[in-house]
């Protein structure tokens, strides 16, 4: 088991190095940083100074090594646009995005898995067929449309939840959370639903397909022959055999959700990383973009590694003997 984990982590580290190279190349290829930072009045001497200070005169390998070492310590340099530490900027926004994504994931699992099980075991009933049909709509609606519809119904017409912002937040060290205040929770609901709708339908359809497969298997038939009650077979024996792809997809999708969050955050004016990134793109703020790239890929790789380890926990056959 330990060897397995070490192998996985080594793999993850290699991937991160490759990503860092990409992020670093953006620096090199996206024009001259000095030109981007300098204003009209700067003298040539000032520019040379800045160039030296940024280490742009060193060779490629040294610069890459320095970038990796700095990035590993969380030092992504200074934002071109507002001269703040990039890490500080991201750390400020990160909790907002993470909370949104985690709540959305939670909603999609809690709603999607039972819906998948029920549509599989009650196949052919009118309510499961309509759920199936509605899920196609859920998959095909773009998330900004969902967001705007939600705002229209629940904020504008009904006035139940705020249409934008994050509400009041409570700070724990560098982490700020909206989960502890009622205005924070109210503000979280709509964007989380907008973000989770697609995931719910995806998980529901995945669980349904897997369940139909597993319910045909011999061990389910044998469990029936042993006199195990139906609900126990469905929710214990069959469901657990369906969870592997669900775990994979959920973990993979947390990464994708962070990307989707970009749109949802814009619709709901949610002060998260997605908004930060969009601003960075508009201003060609390369350190912020590079840091965003590194952090998002770190989350992807981290989750991937967790998934591999979770496999071994769910399925005893994958445990190293």
């Amino acid at each position: 088991m330990l060897v397995f984990i070490i192998k996985r982590i080594a793999n993850a580290a290699m991937v991160m190095l490759a990503v860092a190279l990409l992020a670093f190349l953006i620096f090199r290829l996206a024009g001259d940083p000095v030109e981007l930072m300098a204003n009209e009045q700067m003298s040539q001497a000032d520019r040379d100074n800045l160039r030296e200070k940024l280490g742009l005169n060193d060779n490629f390998a040294t610069q890459y090594a320095r970038f990796v070492v700095n990035a590993a310590q969380g030092n992504f340099g200074i934002s071109y646009r507002n001269n703040q530490e990039v890490l500080g900027l991201i750390a400020e926004r990160f909790p907002a995005t993470m909370e949104l994504v985690l709540v959305a994931t939670f909603i999609s699992l809690v709603v999607g898995i039972p819906m998948g099980v029920i549509t599989a075991i009650q196949r052919g009933k009118w309510y499961t067929e309509s759920l199936q049909f509605l899920s196609i709509i859920g998959v095909s609606l773009p998330s900004f449309v969902v967001g705007i519809l939600l705002i229209l119904v629940f904020s504008v017409s009904l006035g139940w939840a705020p249409a934008f912002g994050r509400g009041d937040v409570v700070d724990f060290g560098w982490w700020s959370t909206g989960l502890l205040t009622s205005s924070g929770r109210a503000a979280l609901i709509l964007p989380a639903i907008a973000l989770s709708l697609y995931q719910i339908t995806l998980i529901m359809r995945l669980v349904r397909a897997e369940m139909l497969e597993v319910l045909r298997s011999d061990f389910v038939k044998f469990a029936r022959a042993r006199g195990i009650p139906r609900w126990r077979i469905h929710f214990r024996h069959a469901l657990r055999n369906c969870l592997m792809p669900v775990v994979t997809m959920t973990a993979m999708n947390i990464g994708a959700l962070i990307a989707f969050a970009l749109i949802t955050e814009t619709v709901f004016q949610w002060p998260g990383m997605g908004m930060l990134f969009i601003q960075a793109v508009t201003f060609i703020d390369i350190p912020v973009m590079a840091a965003y790239l590194c952090i998002v890929s770190f989350i992807f790789v981290f989750l991937n590694t967790l998934v591999d380890i979770a496999y071994a926990v769910i399925d005893p056959r994958l445990r190293a003997r």
Partner: peptide
């Protein structure tokens, strides 16, 4: 359900697939 397993036991053809692999 109370008869199956309690009063009638069953053995199926393929022992490789009759058992739930996860328990």
């Amino acid at each position: 359900e109370k008869v199956r397993g309690r009063e009638i036991g069953a053995i199926f053809q393929d022992p490789l697939t009759s058992l739930n692999p996860l328990f």
